Amino acid sequence: MQLKSLRMFEAVCESGSFGIAAQRLHTVQSNVTAHIKKLEDEVGAQLLVRANPVFPTPAGHTLLQYARQMLQSHDHALALLQSPQFALGPITGVLRIGSMETTAALRLPPLLARLRQQHPGIDLELAVSPTASQLDELRAGRIDCAFINGAAPQSDLHSWPVFREELVLVSNKPLKQFPSADDFCASVFLAFRQGCSYRQRIELLMASMGISAVRIMELGMLDTILGCVAAGMGYALLSRSLVEAQQQRFDVHWMTLPGKTGRELAWVDTCFVSGALEGWSPAVHAFAKVLGVDPQSRESRPVPLAMAA
């Protein structure tokens, strides 16, 4: 059944006339008559009593209920997708989010809770993976948006910085001075798997100290990394705000990265990334608003740590 036919059927039922229905829908009466006849052929039942006024048969009453539901759903979906940022009705659907584990652990819970409070009809799916994996998932259409380290290098993706993190060296005991190259060569770094941007900065930091082959042990999960650092297995490079938030759970300590190179490597922007704006769903628009992201610019209103931690 075509929506156009159902709309004509509804108009005839409401007006009691083929002619009036044709006027309301800006078409000719013969077109309305043809669509009603087609509907009757499709459902295999008479839908209207051709009297004056025209009125629906019992089968017509049944179809009218479903027709109104389908037309209302169609009109609501069309209004949302054409002007999602100005949607008046409730926003529904699934929002598929990708995130680095550190961002998911520290920043996202209060923001997702706020989104859920404002739009309870949105269902959330969160997938945690390194930056490189998220970009692959986003371009393949398996997630709607992502939180990655830095802007997306691909020209078909749009990026907005939303958080700024300071990376620090994490150890199992207080450090009076930054470890030497010999100290690092005798130890290991505990990190996420290949593709993690923090891992890349470990390699850059070690290269700046003349260490060409740094030993990195992949542990995969944040709690495992912090637990193993606390147990004295090695060092880690993590965001300062995250380490401070986890110090009650793990006996770890941190030190800022020294020198010009260290300071350049320490500060990283976490960006909200998504595909073409024309393809955004109402749920993505709603989430961008919570984040303070203006889809029409490359700027965003940074989310205060108190609101996102």
Rank of each mutant, 00 (worst) to 15 (best):
L112A: 01
L226A: 10
A34V: 11
I20A: 14
R7A: 15
M307A: 14
Q85H: 11
S297K: 12
H76D: 13
C271R: 03
M221H: 14
Q248S: 15
R263I: 07
S83W: 04
L277R: 15
V49Q: 11
I122P: 01
S155F: 05
N172C: 12
F55A: 07
D223F: 00
A105R: 14
R68M: 06
A308E: 00
G141P: 08
G275Y: 02
R96F: 00
G292C: 03
F189L: 02
Q46N: 10
E125L: 12
P90T: 06
K176P: 00
A191T: 03
Q248Y: 05
Q246F: 04
V284Q: 15
P53W: 04
L71R: 06
L175T: 06
V12D: 07
E101S: 11
Q85K: 10
E14V: 12
G279I: 00
M1G: 08
L78T: 13
L95P: 02
T224H: 11
M209E: 04
M206T: 13
Q23H: 13
N31C: 07
R139W: 02
S159K: 08
L48Q: 11
C196S: 15
L64E: 03
H76N: 10
L39I: 07
M217D: 13
A51F: 08
A306H: 10
L205E: 01
V94I: 13
T102Q: 09
P282Q: 05
Q248I: 01
D156N: 15
F250P: 03
R249Y: 01
P153L: 07
E278D: 13
H158M: 09
C271K: 06
L124M: 07
D251W: 00
R249Q: 12
R298E: 12
A45F: 07
L64I: 02
I148E: 01
A105C: 09
E40A: 08
F147S: 04
G227P: 06
H35F: 05
S239T: 03
N149S: 14
F55D: 00
T270E: 11
S241W: 02
L204C: 10
G279L: 10
E299N: 09
P109A: 03
P56T: 07
H26F: 14
G150C: 09
I20W: 01
A151V: 11
G259D: 09
A11Y: 10
